[in-house]
Design a protein around this nucleic acid. Structure first.
Lengths: 336, 336
DNA sequence: TTGAAAGCGCTAACAG
DNA sequence: CTGTTAGCGCTTTCAA
């Protein structure tokens, strides 16, 4: 192997420059409180003068932490990467991690149970893991969760005692989106759902049902759009083909709403005049289409940041609630 | 910090079990040749009996390698994540890395020059970096390339002597796609390009120009679709609004082709009867739209694998060519 | 072919 | 509040 030079300046040199011992430098680097102001200042100066960056291998070896966090992404990356909602989640995670001493290790999860990734994680090569977007069928999850602290993006499929997650109130989001439609006078309301193997998709559907029931309305068509653009378009086509045309549609993601929009346009229907359409996410898609989408916002970037924060707190031994439910909010634009 | 237990079995215990010294175990683990068959066998047995897994931090500290590779993704993640082409690239990179001793560190690159990431990478905290999809405006690139070996996805904006990259022949791809259109009898051929800050986008445009020039045809409209879905749709609308309607369009990515398809449908134009449309990538999008896209395939997953392979080889001190140009190929479906 | 010995750069008791 | 002292688990000369 070619030798890679590590950071040339060591803690020893910083200590010398600052006129203190290694330990004191270590203390300021690690934010220990018990350092005198003068020492703190001298060390800080030496650090920035010398551009000192701690060697993570040494640190990790001595402290018995890896300082690494795994970001586990499900195999079917097409859907994952195709949705700006996830881009925002990952950006948020990245942003929070960047402010910490941790680095993010990316793993694209292969459901193969003998998987190298699973054993890598199980062997304590990371301090914790963030798992985004999993399905009922993802079996490797449990093995990871047995080995290291995990924070989930979205309520996990089977909730266990020591599960931590960040989510929004999807039932409520679905309900309020639908209530808005009802309040605007719509009566034949269909929905395009996500895959019913995912809690978020199930919950939004539940919300839609609840709102209709509360208003005494008969539920319209329910079609699975699989959380994809094309799936949304197909679901919309099936809805239109199925008989009575709805006067409004609740799509459980903006991506699917976009697909639906195209299907509606292809069918010669105007939005919102003929069919009102409401999305979910308030991702960049919402404003990039025409008409701009009315949608239920969720704070994706913040959710990502919060996921990382929760994990970092847990690793630091700070007690935190098992879940963090972030607020949603209706954003009214043109489509409904 | 909560203590994370590392793999409990150390090289010392393996050595004891095998009746040899630490050094011999280390030699076996690292594949050194100078080990007697009997020692080799004893050590191998001990390793598997004890489920020994070397501690990366210790290994890294002693060997002065990090065993980590950075995956650097440009800030504007919306575009990155929105394109299935990149999903395939990342999957390929991930797959190859998973077969090695390296792990992938994900960095979302912030153009802020004082960036923590840049200094982290510069300080030798990774052995090498893979940089996907960069623009002429991405200034942090040079600083990374100065610090560690880099492999680029696509020819870098400014090619330096020691730059390594994997790419396809985009000029040729653009030319052949356009030649196909010409061969089908089309004469008024427009193009939807990617941002002209990216080599791939520039080259595909060049190929389009070359094919038209060779056929003695007047170039049609050229509109930038920014490598996004909506950008493609807008570019198509501009082309349609600009006067003479083209009888064929070369879109420099499938994502933009999809946008164009929608704009065409909205304008009441049939594909391919009124306007033929050809894409680029052969991403999953190509078959998920209707009509299915005729497109210029590039082997995205393999490109990702190759990027990782090149970097791993370089890090191993293996001499390799500076670039690897992967083949493209026309895939004829329905849209042209 | 093998073992002994010397660190890699850092953290973490433990005294003081 | 600070320095001293031991290692963390592994690789790597250097001799034998």
């Amino acid at each position: 192997m070619t030798d890679r030079l590590p950071s040339p300046v060591t803690i020893e040199e910083v200590a010398a420059a600052a006129g203190v011992s290694r330990s004191t430098v270590s203390r300021v680097v690690n934010g220990a409180t018990s350092v005198s102001p003068s020492a703190l200042e001298a060390v800080s100066k030496a650090i920035s003068d010398l551009h000192y960056v701690p060697n993570r291998a040494a640190r990790s070896l001595a402290s018995r932490q890896t300082l690494a966090i795994a970001l586990v992404v499900p195999e079917e990356t097409t859907r994952f990467f195709g949705d700006p909602f996830f881009a925002a989640i990952v950006s948020g995670i990245n942003a929070r991690i960047a402010r910490s001493d941790y680095v993010l290790n990316l793993f694209i999860a292969n459901s193969d149970p003998g998987d190298k990734m699973t054993s890598y994680l199980s062997r304590g090569n990371v301090d914790g893991a963030i798992i985004v977007s999993h399905h009922t069928s993802d079996t490797f999850i449990d093995r990871i969760a047995d080995a290291v602290p995990v924070v989930y993006g979205g309520r996990p499929v089977k909730l266990r005692d020591d599960d931590y997650y960040v989510d929004v109130d999807n039932v409520r989001g679905g309900r309020e989106a639908t209530e808005y439609l009802i309040g605007r006078g719509h009566r034949r309301i269909a929905t395009i759902t996500g895959p019913q193997t995912m809690p978020a998709a199930m919950d939004r559907l539940t919300g839609w049902r609840e709102a209709l029931a509360a208003a005494g309305l008969t539920p319209g068509a329910v079609e699975n759009g699989n959380f994809t653009d094309e799936g949304g378009a197909e679901a919309m086509r099936r809805i239109l083909a199925s008989g009575e045309r709805p006067d409004a549609v609740f799509a459980a993601s903006d991506l699917m709403a976009r697909g639906a929009l195209h299907a509606l346009a292809a069918a010669g229907l105007r939005v919102p005049e003929d069919v009102a359409l409401i999305g979910f996410d308030d991702s960049p898609i919402a404003t990039s289409v025409s008409p701009a989408l009315t949608t239920m916002r969720q704070p994706s970037f913040l959710q990502g940041e919060e996921m990382a924060s929760m994990l970092i707190d847990r690793l630091a031994g700070i007690a935190i609630p098992n879940s963090r439910i972030m607020p949603t909010g209706l954003v009214v634009r043109e489509s409904a």
